[in-house]
């Protein structure tokens, strides 16, 4: 049996490279000020989905919710081997917490269904909450297997997965369809395929095509779109209008958690004692720790 997977991916700020000016006064993140990367565990999730396709056949589609420039991330997915990519994007979805995010993602997945397996990374490095996967599963009424380390076997509608738990691991057998979140160690993402990069570097969203036609009276966006669709280079964008969403459950307004206060951490003048990095300094330090009753 072959399997149809959808992988939820996210473009995240590279938290290792954060400069000032990233926080907006309302406490949300000014993402435009940050370099972005493919959330590492989502990339592993895509790799696992591609491996499943290599082994059993089927399809791998990817889905991201984010700003329009998240199309970069979707092209990366196509370079790795995804069959199709979808962007969920609308100003009305901005400022969403995990609950509002999972609501929109679940509606988008309903639209893209049917599917056998939904994959996602365990968590995104910009919040580390690990909540969106389980919340999306709950909204779709799907079982979930979190912290997957390996897919051992798939047979008919059953999948066997090894997952991490505190103090060890479990082997679980689940009935499809279900949602799986994946830890970093599960696989090493394959590099981009040169051939695919050549083919898909021209894959574009509608907005990108509109930009290409700007100031060019000979190009019509509808024609262009048709051409891109026929070449398999069109990345569909799903907006609030395309999804049957209740707007009161989307974006900042649909988020039960609110940022009440942000405090910068200002370290007070350091009251510590400086110890010279010398042999004598270390001897003196040991004496002090003996006085403190830590040693001796």
């Amino acid at each position: 049996m072959s399997y149809h997977s959808i992988v939820m991916v996210k473009q995240v700020p590279d938290t290792a490279n954060i400069s000032g000016q990233v926080m907006k006064p309302d406490g949300t993140v000014n993402r435009s000020k940050l370099p972005t990367i493919f959330n590492p565990e989502d990339k592993v999730a895509l790799e696992l989905a591609l491996q499943l396709r290599d082994r059993y056949g089927g399809t791998v589609r990817v889905l991201t919710m984010g700003p329009l420039k998240a199309s970069d991330l979707l092209r990366d997915c196509l370079y790795m081997g995804a069959d199709e990519a979808f962007l969920v994007s609308d100003r009305k979805f901005a400022g969403a917490d995990t609950l509002a995010t999972s609501y929109v993602l679940a509606e988008a997945l309903r639209k893209l269904g049917p599917y056998d397996i939904i994959f996602a990374g365990r968590q995104a490095i910009d919040g580390d909450t690990a909540q969106v996967g389980p919340q999306t599963a709950e909204k779709l009424g799907l079982p979930q297997i979190t912290y997957a380390e390996a897919i051992l076997e798939a047979q008919g509608p059953q999948i066997t997965v090894k997952r991490k738990v505190d103090h060890g691991f479990e082997i679980l057998e689940g009935t499809l369809p279900l949602l799986i979140t994946v830890v970093k160690d599960a696989a090493t993402p394959r590099p981009f395929r040169a051939k695919r990069v050549m083919a898909y570097k021209n894959a574009h969203t509608l907005l990108e095509l509109e930009k290409m036609t700007e100031g060019n009276s000979l190009l019509y966006v509808d024609q262009l779109k048709e051409e891109y669709v026929s070449k398999g280079l069109f990345i569909p964008t799903l907006t609030a209008d395309d999804l049957d969403v209740d707007l009161s459950r989307c974006g900042l307004g649909g988020s039960p958690t609110k940022v009440h206060k942000i405090e910068s951490v200002v370290l007070g003048g350091s009251a510590h004692e400086t110890i010279p990095a010398t042999r004598d300094g270390m001897y003196a330090l040991i004496d002090k720790l003996m006085e403190d009753h830590i040693f001796g």
């Binding site: 938290t15 954060i18 990233v22 926080m23 406490g27 993140v29 910009d126 919040g127 039960p256 958690t257 609110k258 940022v259 009440h260 206060k261 942000i262 405090e263 910068s264 951490v265």
Partner: peptide, 13 residues
């Protein structure tokens, strides 16, 4: 602590 590490966020519902 949130985002980038130089802020402490207070979240309410």
């Amino acid at each position: 602590p949130a985002f980038g590490g130089n802020i402490i966020a207070t979240i309410i519902c």
